[in-house]
């Protein structure tokens, strides 16, 4: 090299990768610690799940089944969506069932219920039932049996109570009533719900999957075999927003005190609403959106690096050309 003095861009070319690691770490940590406001764009598949669940509001003859098919490794992406959906159900008085078929999902399922329950006066057996863990080997038999009679397929809930004796089961018989199944997985586990619950009994099936798996599910969305989908942290963020904007909507009463005033879904409202994340007190149910902030900054950071790297590349190339 003729010119010994390296300019900024050339230095960037030879940047030690550890600086990149450092910047990425900061880009992830800082947005997590100091949330900023960002707007979440709600996509169609998320909207569809929300609308479907919301249409069960206050009905005793409808219920949602949440199936937890993942372990702790994908918790970061899936847990916020589980909590968001549970909150939606608790807020809107929608009956929920939970079940899991892998042992590692059991503690996550309990934890999600515990987290979402906070602040709501909901009771197990009346507002929701945890079916608990059932072995993977009987997963398909249970799916099929549920098409006939849920209380026969599952028999006992996680607390050992007979399902038939629970008030929540009064008007719930099979997939005709438990009309929506949402499967959370980092794999293609939702496929078996499509094959058995949807194809055989016409139940609505939706999926909550990790971002990596989301691409695989687009074909089912296109065909309508999946009612909706939450893809990765982004999907969770979208759902959180919908819950905040509609189900947990607050309005001031005549004394100016904020009162809960849930409202129905509307495309027009969502376009013009955004929820402040900067006020730290309310961080609790904003995990996914705050996470998306980190993701945004990280993506931007990488893009900036790529651009800088390219500028440096062109400059050094031109220099080389000049020398030659």
């Amino acid at each position: 090299m003729a010119d010994k003095k390296m300019n900024f861009f050339e230095k960037m070319q030879a940047l030690d990768r550890r600086y990149i690691y450092l910047v990425v770490a900061l880009a992830i940590i800082i947005p997590l610690l100091v949330p900023f406001n960002s707007r979440t764009y709600v996509t169609e598949p998320t909207e569809n799940i929300y609308k479907k669940i919301d249409s069960f509001t206050g009905r005793n003859d409808r219920a949602v089944l949440l199936c937890f098919d993942h372990d702790a490794s994908t918790m970061a992406e899936l847990f916020p969506m589980e909590v968001a959906i549970l909150r939606h159900c608790f807020e809107r008085d929608i009956q929920v069932f939970t079940i899991c078929f892998i042992p590692a999902a059991k503690p996550l399922m309990d934890y999600a219920l515990q987290t979402a329950k906070e602040g709501y006066e909901v009771q197990s057996g009346i507002d929701y039932v945890n079916f608990g863990y059932r072995p993977w080997a009987i997963r398909i038999p249970i799916m099929l049996k549920m098409g006939d009679d849920i209380s026969e397929a599952v028999e006992y809930d996680d607390e050992g109570r007979k399902l038939t004796n629970l008030p929540i089961m009064k008007e719930i018989m099979n997939y005709n009533e438990m009309n929506l199944i949402v499967d959370f997985a980092g794999s293609a586990a939702v496929l078996s719900w499509i094959t058995y619950a949807r194809a055989k009994f016409g139940a609505n099936v939706a999926a909550g999957v990790t971002a990596v798996m989301a691409a695989d599910n687009y074909i089912y969305l296109q065909t309508g075999q999946l009612t909706g989908m939450l893809g990765g942290l982004k999907g969770a963020a979208e759902y959180e927003k919908l819950v905040d904007v509609f189900a947990c909507h607050m309005e001031p009463d005549e004394n100016g005190v904020m009162q809960p005033a849930p409202r129905d879904f509307s495309k027009e409202i969502i376009k013009n609403t955004w929820i402040k994340m900067s006020d730290i007190k309310n961080r609790m149910h904003k995990t996914a959106r705050i996470g998306m902030n980190a993701q945004t900054v990280a993506h931007l950071m990488i893009i900036v690096f790529i651009i800088l790297g390219n500028i440096g590349y062109f400059i050094s190339k031109r220099k080389k050309d000049k020398v030659n």
Binding site: L15, R17, I20, Y21, V23, V24, A25, I28, A298, M301, I302, F305, I306, G309, N310, Y313, F314
Partner: peptide, 14 residues
Amino acid sequence: AFYIASAAYKAFRA
């Protein structure tokens, strides 16, 4: 996450 960032930085040159 870190490795992807550094790999992207190095690889994506026009």
